[in-house]
Design a protein around this nucleic acid. Structure first.
Lengths: 233, 233
DNA sequence: ACCTGAACACCGTTCAAGT
DNA sequence: ACCTGAACACCGTTCAAGT
């Protein structure tokens, strides 16, 4: 009856919010700041303590451990996802906007990508977003489990497109990065694959950003078309 | 001319393989074994050294640092991805098989999911798989950049579906996990979202595995339909 | 109720020294 | 050419002790 079901902040009774001293919100938002600035390596309990001019171990009164802190930060990211009302714009426009918005939010908080594979999104913000997304697919005409399938499909596309982007950004945003040198290296690495080389040479490396946008748009249109087709049949 | 273009094993000249002493392959495969058994926390340079009955720091002669070791291990995972010949089975069957295969490979090596957002897949195995996947989309009729867009779209779907699965597995595979307790907790957490609750109650929690497969199939069919539509127009 | 510092058991990595 | 151990600068977390 009282075995802990899953190690997650969200599945335990919340500690009641008393006012004095530090607050959980303050700690979480300081953590997010560190993560945004320097990524995961920028957040340690000691650094976070220092930023709040507290001992590192004081934080353990507010938060069970670092993972729990990350769960809280992760949910804040979910809170930034825009969720338009499908009644206003139609389900396709609504779904597109959500997809683009989710991508932007993740790109703004690259550290959150690491968490997608680490902890289920069970916080109130995440649930709220999911609830709203389901409404869009309901409005589209999906019923029963297909509401969730459609939602998962769109979300999977966005995650799967965005997560590798972050890997590239991380590798590319180093001080002494040189694009030309990079392209040459990739060509050398891909030397045994003539077909692949062809794509590397499609001078798309000149503006990787534009390439990404086109790729995302192409994929998004495909996914939405595929979902739409599921409605008709 | 000689600024390092990107911190990656693959973009440097390989150290020539001399025979005596330990080998890189041996080290990488031992690392993969540790990762498969215990996840990322199971792999430390010290533990890996011990497993090979060597000092932890001996490994640094074969590998520049831990990240590089992970790059090597990651590429081995890519090597496990099945890539059928589209000439034999048609592009849609080929793409389906690749998608399902990729998912299984990632699920077999859950630690690899973490790496997708951390390092670009530039190893020889990854490039080989990409090359083969491009052939499938070429066979389908895609041309130019659309070959890559289609490929990215399918890959994104697979990654995006599979990565959160791993988060659930990790949270769920703890010793004292109780499914009923879990469902009850989620219901409590989702209490404010009546629509969402409806889906939680769709007694799909009884067999989450079956639910996942159906979800994946639904999404895969959608993505392939969407891609196919891009060909016709 | 809240905060502290000391202490424990770890990390990755460097480097001078060995063979 | 290969391997070593000592050492450095970190980690997350526990816990007895303080206020």
């Amino acid at each position: 009856m009282t075995g802990k079901p899953l190690a997650s902040v969200w599945l335990r009774e919340p500690r009641k919010a008393t006012s004095p001293g530090r607050s959980r919100e303050e700690i979480v938002s300081a953590a997010i700041q560190l993560l945004d600035e320097e990524g995961h390596s920028g957040l340690s309990m000691r650094k976070l303590g220092a930023k709040l001019s507290a001992g590192a171990t004081s934080l353990y009164w507010y938060v069970a451990n670092k993972d729990e802190l990350l769960e809280l930060a992760y949910d804040e990211v979910w809170g930034e996802m825009p969720v338009p009302d499908p009644g206003q714009v139609g389900w396709r426009a609504s779904a597109s906007a959500m997809a683009r918005g989710m991508r932007q939010v993740i790109l703004r908080h690259p550290w959150s990508a690491d968490l997608i594979g680490r902890m289920p999104a069970l916080g109130p913000q995440a649930l709220g977003v999911t609830d709203k997304m389901r409404k869009t697919f309901k409005a589209a005409g999906f019923r029963g489990l297909e509401i969730d399938y459609a939602n998962s499909t769109l979300t999977a596309f966005v995650f799967g497109m965005t997560i590798p982007e972050i890997a590239w950004d991380a590798a590319t945003n180093t001080p002494d990065y040189d694009a030309e040198e990079m392209r040459a290296s990739v060509v050398r690495a891909a030397a045994q694959f003539p077909d692949l080389l062809e794509s590397v040479n499609l001078d798309t490396y000149d503006d990787p950003q534009a390439m990404r946008e086109m790729c995302f748009d192409f994929g998004l249109a495909s996914v939405l078309d595929g979902l739409e087709r599921r409605l008709v049949t």
